[in-house]
């Protein structure tokens, strides 16, 4: 039931690789035995019902789970072959290379300019800050809308613009990977469409992992899709696990697992 199929096409160069990853919160096992590769410059979608651990796994990739005191990660996650959780790996440096965009747009309550300059400045950026801000906003397809109001608060923007500002902020520090945790769930359909178009643009340069509850979105933007599911344990907790990981069209049209078939056709979840 939990077997993971892997077609040959997955085995390109893996940027991130999870091997037998388990995540505990306190003594509760939240996700068990996740093994998957995130290939270079592809968009990988994580789908599955609530509580299946897809966001938890996402947060292991940039060590955001370190900030949760009770969280514990077992197994191995490598980034370009190096163990992300080895003692000589600095989580702060890791997060610069592996950026993150959150579910709710969370710009700093500062100017648009400052929102983007902050990450660059704390990471010791030496180049021209004005250029960087413009370039980041252009790549996030936001420049034309905000170029005359760079000194105004980021909170004055619409929800969709705020989310693109957060994406601009993430790419300003030149990450290799961008993790997106349901980036469109708080946005209206038109803003969602813009962010999705942006993801298509960004995958030329970045490896992207996106968690989404929207299956159309997964099928529109991703090259590969991982389907997670959850099962109840005897103690009443839910444990998430990876059911199936394959090219997106396989997951949506011809999945090998029945649970995947039922989920993508909307029969549960």
């Amino acid at each position: 039931m939990t077997q993971v199929s892997s077609s040959t096409e997955l085995v390109t160069e893996a940027v991130l690789r999870a091997q037998g990853v388990k995540v505990y919160y306190g003594t509760n096992l939240a996700v068990r035995d996740v093994t998957l590769d995130i290939p270079f410059n592809k968009v990988v979608a994580f789908i599955g019902p609530s509580g299946c651990g897809k966001s938890t796994i996402l947060r292991c990739f940039n060590r955001m789970n370190d900030l949760v005191a009770s969280a514990r990660v077992e197994g191995k996650i490598t980034f370009h072959g190096r163990d992300l959780y080895a003692s000589n790996i600095d989580p702060v440096e890791t997060r610069r290379r592996i950026g993150m965009v959150f579910q709710k747009p969370n710009p700093f309550p500062k100017s648009i300019f400052e929102n983007i300059a902050f990450g660059a400045r704390i990471n010791g950026y030496k180049g021209d800050m004005n250029e960087l801000v413009e370039d980041s906003l252009r790549r996030a397809a936001l420049w034309d809308e905000v170029k005359d109001q760079l000194q105004e608060s980021g909170l004055a923007l619409s929800g969709g613009q705020q989310q693109r500002l957060c994406i601009a902020r993430a790419i300003a520090i030149a990450p290799e990977v961008i993790l997106m945790d349901e980036p469109c769930s708080a946005l209206d359909p038109i803003s969602t469409l813009k962010v999705e178009e942006l993801i298509q643009e960004l995958k030329q340069q970045y490896t992207i992992v996106i968690v989404t509850h929207n299956m159309q979105q997964a099928s529109r933007v991703s090259d590969l899709t991982a389907f997670y599911n959850a099962e109840a344990t005897e103690g009443g907790n839910k444990v998430g696990y990876l059911v199936e990981y394959d090219r997106t069209e396989v997951i949506f049209q011809n999945p090998t697992q029945q649970a995947t078939q039922e989920y993508v056709s909307g029969r549960f979840g």
Partner: peptide
Amino acid sequence: DSIRQAGFALGATRWQVIWDQ
């Protein structure tokens, strides 16, 4: 907390998050 998370996700240290954000 979303402000702190945003700071950490950009590679800020705890003190940088506290002081700047």
